[in-house]
Amino acid sequence: MKYMLMMHAPRTGWETAGIATWPMDDIKAHIGFMKQFAGELQASGELVGAEGLASPEHARIVRAGRNGGPEVTDGPFAEAKEFLAGYWIVDVPATERAYAIAARASAAPGKGGVPLNMPIEVREVMSAPPAEA
């Protein structure tokens, strides 16, 4: 079963409260953790894909205009309090394992080495229909 693990980050304060304002050692610890975490998932054969997304400043919302061409506005929606910062897709035998991986990601070290406890949204990826008996 494949699951997408989505890491959400608060929309406001990237430059004033986010990782950019942590002390050096804490930043290093966080980056080291993320690297090691990805390495572990790769080594266990569970990692399907993972990407970090550029800051929401780059995000745009696109709708088809009248002639079918792109109509581009700033996004995401201004009222959203969180944005998608990145995701992992893992292939695991059971939901419990996906939850365990998500919990580990959630506990990534933050300022002062305190676990961030980030919310990780776990969603099952749709798959092929079951084989007919």
Binding site: I19, A20, T21, W22, P23, M24, D25, I27, K28
Partner: peptide
């Protein structure tokens, strides 16, 4: 962000 952290007064005090 590490360049910024190195210049942060908090970081100096901390280290």
């Amino acid at each position: 962000i590490m360049k910024a952290a190195r210049l942060s007064p908090n970081d100096e005090a901390r280290s």
